[in-house]
Design a protein around this nucleic acid. Structure first.
Lengths: 135, 135, 135, 135
DNA sequence: GTGGTCTAGACCACG
DNA sequence: GTGGTCTAGACCACG
């Protein structure tokens, strides 16, 4: 199953980031297998009703991160999975993101139980989408 | 035990955001108690090697959120905690912060178990620090 | 009917505050409806003959208060009204605003009857404007 | 009855403004009659536990506004009442202050009845203080 | 000395 | 072209 997601204009998440997330989710899901071809920049831009520069930017970021690869004159394809960050770097980045989240939550006066529950719910929602192949 | 954090110029996180997060962490930690004075705008700017306007911007955001208060001509102090947001708004903000964290974690290819474990560890660390009154 | 106000450079009220008040007045008037686009930061700066940073500061404050929302690369729009503050916080803010008004009125030597009358007139004007959809 | 008020350090109202308000309230009250002598700058500074520059600044503003007058080498006295603003100017300033208040109130989603009630309460509180000669 | 505001100008992120 | 961030430097308000 090819790329199949929607983007939300109203969201605070930048459109190019939503595209990146959509493609990565497809790859993680198995919806997109290694070697599968993605829609061209212009085709995806038309389908999502966004500027083609925005799609191009997202594709570039995905190429940079080794998720997809561009084969000159033929199109864009899902790349063989490889890790680009060291283990230490991945954990450093995770911790920074986690610190920001937990700090905000504690400042908003949520307690540990509420935080755990919110995390659990968010993970379940994400998994639900994955299993059903939803957007 | 006074403000004690570093900022990273290279980061994609804006400097003023890093300052906000640093102060908030101190407050939630207990490192900064109600009534404690923060370093002056100019003093912190010198210490962090950034422009004073950048520190002022961060301090003003903290004032708006009720974390600190500014007493004209005398300095900036940690404010008494008060809930200013409705329940709905608190949950909206929690979800936005959580979405940013989980999105980043999934992009970094952490799975649910790893995310849960990282959250658990962070909550335990925060509680440990609070109990011991550590930094 | 678009943003339409003047700012006064000589005033003791900071320019960015005057911009905030102008936009808020438009929104409460009904002059600016949900979804309406505001002039761009640079366009409004040119029109008001002030620096673009000053407009950006005002817009950001309005975003924080949920009055407007910024869509990256596209502009700034009037947001759907939502209550973000607790009842206590709303009353705290009402009282602060009222204190400032009554203090000024008493300094100007208006008596209670005159103050009541001025408030009454202002409320009637606001309602009239709202009903007619005027500026 | 001489000057008799307290200032509040924690308040967002600047100290010099609180001093001005206190003296003006005394004059309006009748606690301070035309020709009464006020405490010297240093005496009042000591009594209020504030910087003497702050008192001097307040006195200067009161002199400028014609509320008090300084008699060289003898002290500071309550002046004969005179209006310094034209009627139009007084009303212009009242309206600006009122617009800011009502705008904030409407944005906080208070309705007309609530606004009227808050104004009424504030005026009554101020009168109560006046009648009892309280601060 | 403390924070607050503003300008001019640069550069980045997004579309 | 849109908003966001930052710097350098000025000047004001308050104490």
């Amino acid at each position: 199953m090819a790329v199949d997601f929607q983007i939300s204009i109203g969201s605070t998440v930048p459109i190019y980031r939503q595209i990146i997330d959509g493609v990565r989710r497809g790859v993680t899901n198995g919806e997109l297998a290694v070697g599968d071809q993605l829609p061209s920049v212009r085709a995806l831009a038309e389908r999502l009703l966004v500027n083609h520069n925005t799609v191009a930017k997202a594709y570039q970021a995905l190429v940079r991160d080794g998720v997809i690869e561009s084969r000159h004159g033929r199109g864009v394809f899902v790349a063989k999975r490889r890790n680009i960050y060291t283990k230490a770097e991945r954990h450093r980045r995770l911790d920074a993101a986690l610190q920001a989240f937990v700090g905000e939550a504690l400042l908003l006066d949520f307690d540990d139980a509420e935080i755990r529950q919110a995390v659990e719910k968010k993970l379940n929602d994400a998994n639900g989408r994955k299993k059903r192949g939803d957007q």
